[in-house]
Computed example of a mutant assay.
Amino acid sequence: MRGRCPSCTRAYDQTRGGARRRGYDHQWQRVRAAFLAAHPVCCVAGCGKPATDADHIQSVRDRPDLRLAPSNLRPMCHAHHSQRTSRDQVPRGRV
Rank of each mutant, 00 (worst) to 15 (best):
Met1Cys: 05
Met1Ala: 13
Gly3Asn: 08
Arg4Val: 05
Arg4Lys: 14
Arg4Gly: 13
Pro6Gly: 10
Ser7Phe: 05
Cys8Phe: 02
Cys8Asn: 08
Arg10Leu: 05
Ala11Trp: 02
Tyr12Phe: 13
Gln14Ala: 15
Thr15Phe: 00
Arg16Thr: 09
Arg16Met: 14
Arg16Ile: 14
Gly17Arg: 00
Gly17His: 00
Gly18Leu: 09
Gly18Trp: 05
Gly18Tyr: 04
Arg20Met: 01
Arg20Gly: 02
Arg21Val: 03
Arg22Val: 01
Gly23Asp: 06
Tyr24Pro: 01
Tyr24Val: 02
His26Met: 03
His26Tyr: 08
Gln27Arg: 15
Trp28Val: 05
Gln29Tyr: 09
Arg30Met: 13
Ala33Cys: 06
Ala33Tyr: 08
Phe35Ile: 12
Leu36Asn: 13
Leu36Trp: 15
Ala37Gly: 10
Ala38Met: 05
Ala38Val: 03
Pro40Thr: 11
Pro40Ser: 13
Val41Ala: 11
Val41Gly: 07
Cys43Pro: 00
Ala45Leu: 12
Ala45Phe: 07
Gly46Gln: 12
Gly46Pro: 08
Cys47Phe: 09
Gly48Lys: 11
Pro50Gly: 14
Ala51Ser: 13
Thr52Ile: 05
Ala54Val: 04
Ala54His: 08
Asp55Glu: 15
His56Thr: 01
His56Trp: 03
His56Glu: 04
Ile57Gln: 06
Gln58Leu: 12
Ser59Lys: 07
Val60Glu: 04
Asp62Gly: 02
Arg63Ile: 01
Pro64Lys: 06
Pro64Gly: 06
Asp65Leu: 06
Asp65Val: 03
Asp65Arg: 04
Leu66Ala: 04
Leu66Phe: 07
Arg67Lys: 10
Ala69Lys: 04
Ala69Gln: 12
Ala69Thr: 11
Pro70Tyr: 10
Ser71Ala: 15
Ser71Asn: 05
Asn72Tyr: 09
Asn72Cys: 07
Asn72Thr: 08
Leu73Val: 10
Arg74Leu: 03
Pro75Val: 08
Pro75Arg: 07
Pro75Glu: 11
Ala79Asp: 00
Ala79Gln: 01
Ala79Ile: 00
His80Gly: 01
His81Met: 02
Ser82Pro: 00
Thr85Arg: 05
Ser86Ala: 15
Ser86Phe: 07
Ser86Trp: 08
Arg87Met: 13
Asp88Lys: 04
Gln89Phe: 03
Val90Leu: 11
Pro91Lys: 07
Pro91Glu: 14
Pro91His: 09
Arg94Gln: 09
